[in-house]
Each structure stands twice: as C-alpha cells, then as structure tokens.
Design a protein around this nucleic acid. Structure first.
Length: 534
RNA sequence: GGCCCAUUCGUCUAGUGGUAGGACGCAAGGUUUUCAAUCUUGUUGCGUGAGUUCGAUUCUCACAUGGGCUACCA
C-alpha cells in the first residue's frame, strides 16, 4: 500500500531539529511504501513574508536529503503537485466551503456569543466546574440569526460537538486511545473575520491531499478527537494516526523549544557544541547570535560542516530503534528497516554529545577526497583560500587534513589550522602559549635560534618528517636537553598556537622557507618582549 | 483545576515472569612533543507501595514524579 504522508511547517524562518525528526519519519514511511511525501505550509496565521521565511526551511530539508514530492516549489514561490496550492493561506475557500457544509448538516453552528462566551467559561472555572457552553448564542435558524445580528453581534463558527459517548481510535505508536466526547468544547473553526482555524484546515487538507497516514508529535494527540469529528462529519475516510513522542530538552523531559536557548546553554554538552560552532561561524563571517544560530536549528549544523547523514542517523534513533545494538543506518537501511511499531512512547532528550559522536563516526568513514573538498569550502568561506581555488591547493589541504586525522570532526574544524594559510609575516602568535613556551623558559630563545640555524643548513628536499625528526633528535642530544624542552617552543614558533597535530608534521607541511620565516618572526617578537620587560 | 501520556545506567535505548545487554558519556591507568585520538580497566540503572505469583524490572492497582493538551495559535 502506497503511503502518503505530510509534514506541515509554519514559515518561521527556522527549521527546528524536533520538526526534522517528525519530517524524517514521515519521509521514510512514504519512501518505504513507494508513496509520496507532501510538504504543506501552515501559514493561516502568518502575516509576515512567507516566501522569505520559508526559504531556510526548504533549504534545510534539501540539505538533509528529505525531498518532497508535492508542496512548495524549490524557491518557495509557488506550488508543485496535483492538488492546487499547498499553502493554507491560498486555500481559504476550501475551508469556508467545509465550514458551510458542516453548518448545513448540523455539525457546526454560527455562534454569536462574542465576549459572553469567555464570561461563561470564567464563571464555570471560578465555580470549579467543568465548563459546558450553554449554546445560548447558537443560531441555527434564520430567526435566531436575524435577532442576534440586530443586536449588533458578529459570529464565529463552532463545532457542535457530541456531548456523550467516547471517541476511540487506534494509534500506530500508542495503541488504542479514547477520549470522552463530553469533555470536548465546541471549538471555533472559523473566525469572525471569516478566516479558518488550524483544525479545520488541517482536516480538509489531509483529505484533499489524500494523506493516508498522519504522523505527528504527541502534542496533537488531544486534538485528534475534534479532527476526527470534523472528518467524519464531512464524510471523509479517516487517516491512520501515529503520534510520536516529542524531542525533549537536553537533560530534561520538557519539550525542546527554540525559545529557551539561554537555558540550554547551561547544559555542558550543549554549550560545548554551541561554542565550537560559534568559533567556526565567526571565522566564516556568521554572527553567532544564539537566537538564530544554535544547536536546536538545522542551519547550525550545515553552517559548521556536519554531514547531513549523521544528523539523519542520530534523529532516527531518537525514539526509534531496530534492536539492541544497531546504531548506524544508511539512507537505504533507514527506509528498509524503519517501522512505526518500534517507535517508543516516551520523550527522548536531545543529546548534543551523542550527535557529535555520530558526526565523528561519519567523518571517520568519509574518504579523504570528499573530506578535503568540504574543508576547502570552509577555507574559502573564511577567506583563507582564494575562490576559485588555486589548482594545486587540494594536495596541500589534503596533507593538512591527513595530518589532522580525527581532530577534524566537522568540516569547519579545519579552520583551527588557519595558520597554514596565512602569510608568514602575518602569522598570529597567541599570547598565552607564547608566554608559556617561548618567553618563560630561559633557554627557549637560544634553542629556537640554534635549531633555526640548523634548519637553514638543510636541503629543501630533506625537509621531511623522518629527516626533521632525526635532526631534532641529534640537536637535543648535542644540547643535552629533552625533546620536550624545545618542541613546544617550536610549535608556537611555526604555528603561533598552543595545540595541534605533531610539530614535526606541521613543519614538514609548511616547508623550509616558511618555517624559517616564522621562527624569525617569533624570535623578533621575543626580543621585543624581553626589551619591554627590562 | 480538567483530560491524556510517560517512567530501565548521567543520556539514547534493548529486553525478559527467574534481577538486565549495547551505544554515547564519565573515571582511572598505559602510550604520547601539546591537544585530540587510541588501548586497558572500571563505573552507574528497572520511581515508590501494595496485589497476583514459588518467584516481578516484566502483569494489575494506587501513589509519586515528569510531561503534553486545555485559544477566534499551529
């Protein structure tokens, strides 16, 4: 059976990680059955620029490889698919027609209560009683309508909900569920200004778009009875339902929300991810404002060089598992092996650390050519490599990437090795390691200078890792010192940094001339520091 | 307040009527020129109470805790 699923984002400008998980499950279901995945835009309430706010969301899905068969066009300016517009704001007549039909058949009514409705509800609440609307301003006849309108009242359309019995249905994740009809209020489906509300629009669209499976987050579970009521009243076949647990905050069971970033930043792991992302972002000219750039939003991961497959894999396992050990799933495996029945019922906390671990695994498995290509893009974004890239650059970047090994977890991490790409006379020497490794040890300057003299005497083509190692060994022996007495100063001397991969590898990649120039620069800086101090 | 839902290591999870397995993390140690990695070892868990039962983490009920929903939001 071909399953048609849908995901219905609001054009907010941001693609939320929890939303992606829901979309991913919907997408997998459609793909595994040879059905279609539909994107519908819930903009009934939006007054902002929809196309603009939609773009980042569509880009996010595209980046993740979650492609949609029907929905907005790629640029978000129109719709593609056989069902007309996939934007709710453009489907108002459909909803109004449905509301009209519901009224005519007695499943809904015009309600002229206005503020009196609210007053009735408050009275009931004060008396601590279950509120049941008196339907005092319900107009079902022309006379009533005329009378209320003569009083200057305007109307909304409310559902005329059943007041007894139960609404029972089977949910693919939660099993059999049921709700008392009597507890359901008469929900508004059409506003006084004639526009329609979510529940009506949702049911009408799911029907029009021939959605067979409604797979969404649990917060919609309590909404399901009213939607079932609408669907049945309209004579629609009911879709299958599956309510997924929501994605929870790091270290808690509260629903993850992009509004509480500040709080999540108190979480150690979340903060660490955010900070390493921020460092990368700053180097490529993105302002790391936590409101728009943080680990709850998908853009964050794209911007700092995550592999989309790692995100999908992590999200797949947030609430679903195949068995007691399988952790790694390719796209094909996801599609082949996923089933709603193995979705768990309780919420799953977002764990930044585990996501990073998935990324690390994917990066380890990435072949070096691909790795180099993605790193190169970051170097270009940071202005460290020209665009278009010089033709010999790939080899150079390749050496760095190989030497860095798993120090590069996400492609943006390559920017930690920015010193390879700056002119020698413009190398930044970080102050802290400079003080600790060069200024403070008495003999560091002397040793650096002596070793530099040694380097000056070596042949260009002997500037290799084994040769350098040998000469450094010999040097240490001649000076009667330990390797540790000089190598740290040397690292700072050629890279300006406190940490990195092997100093000797670093030097070999830089080459003779550049190492010597950098050592000169460092020694000059040392002299300045000494003069200043005395 | 009402309705609904959930509860296995810190986190993601597997699982069973005979007391739990994996992953991420964490800790210690080895290796190491820094950082990371890596290797070794270790670490921690069935919310509480009652019932059914020879026996319950597993079934039932209650409680507790956490959460969601309760709009002329989606």
């Amino acid at each position: 059976m071909a399953i048609r699923t849908r995901f219905a984002p609001s054009p907010t400008g941001f693609l939320h990680i929890g939303g992606v998980r829901t979309a991913l499950f919907n997408w997998i279901l459609a793909r595994q059955s040879g059905g279609q995945f539909v994107l519908r835009i819930d903009d009934t309430d939006a007054k902002r620029n929809v196309a603009e706010a939609l773009q980042p969301i569509l880009d996010g899905f595209r980046w993740l490889g979650i492609d949609w068969d029907e929905g907005p066009t790629d640029d978000g300016s129109g719709s593609k698919g056989p069902h007309g517009s996939y934007f709710q704001s453009e489907r108002l007549e459909k909803y109004q027609a449905a509301a009209k039909q519901l009224i005519e058949q007695g499943f809904a009514y015009k309600d002229y209560s206005g503020a009196d409705f609210q007053a009735e509800r408050e009275t009931a609440e004060k008396a601590k009683q279950q509120f049941v609307y008196s339907r005092k301003w319900m107009a079902e006849t022309d006379e009533q309508t005329a009378q209320f309108e003569s009083e200057g009242r305007s109307f909304v359309v409310r559902l005329k909900m059943p007041r007894e019995g139960t609404c029972a249905f089977t949910d693919h994740v939660r099993g059999d569920v049921s709700f008392e009809w009597g507890l359901e209020p008469d929900h508004v489906i059409q506003r006084a200004d004639g526009t329609c509300l979510y529940h009506l629009a949702n049911v009408v669209d799911d029907h029009d778009f021939e959605i067979t499976h409604v797979v969404r987050a649990v917060e919609h579970l309590p909404n399901t009875p009213r939607q079932i009521f609408i669907a049945q009243s309209l004579g629609y076949d009911l879709p299958e339902y599956a309510h997924l647990p929501y994605v929870a905050e790091p270290g808690s069971k509260k629903k993850l929300s992009k509004r509480h970033i500040e709080k999540y930043l108190n979480n150690k792991d979340f903060k660490r991810l955010y900070q390493s992302g921020s460092n990368i972002a700053e180097q490529i000219g993105i302002t790391p404002d936590p409101a728009t750039f943080n680990p709850v939003l998908v853009d964050f991961y794209r911007d700092i060089g995550f592999d989309p497959a790692a995100i999908n894999n992590y999200l797949l396992l947030l609430g679903w598992s195949l068995d007691d050990k399988t952790e790694s799933f390719s796209r094909e495996q996801m599609i082949e092996l996923f089933s709603l029945e193995r979705v768990i019922k309780s919420p799953a906390s977002f764990d930044a650390k585990k996501l990073t671990a998935f990324q690390q695994n994917y990066m380890d498995a990435t072949e070096s050519k691909t790795k180099v290509a993605s790193c190169l893009k970051f170097l270009q974004s940071a202005g460290l490599v020209a665009t278009p890239a010089p033709c010999d650059i790939a080899g150079y970047v390749g050496e760095i990437v190989a030497a860095a090994g798993d120090r590069i977890c996400m492609a943006g991490d390559v920017l930690a090795f920015d010193f390879f790409f700056v002119d020698d006379d413009k190398m930044t020497i970080e102050d802290k390691p400079f003080q600790k490794r060069v200024v403070k040890p008495e003999s560091a300057g002397f040793l650096l200078n002596e070793f530099k003299k040694l380097l000056v005497g070596t042949n260009e083509d002997e500037f290799t890792v084994p040769a350098l190692e040998a000469s450094l060994d010999g040097f240490c022996e001649a000076q009667s010192i330990e390797m540790g007495d000089v190598i740290h100063a040397l690292r700072v001397g050629v890279s300006g940094k406190a940490a990195g991969f092997g100093t000797i590898d670093t030097m070999a990649i830089l080459g003779k001339d550049r190492c010597i120039k950098r050592l000169d620069l460092t020694l000059a800086k040392l002299e300045d520091a000494r003069n200043e101090a005395s």
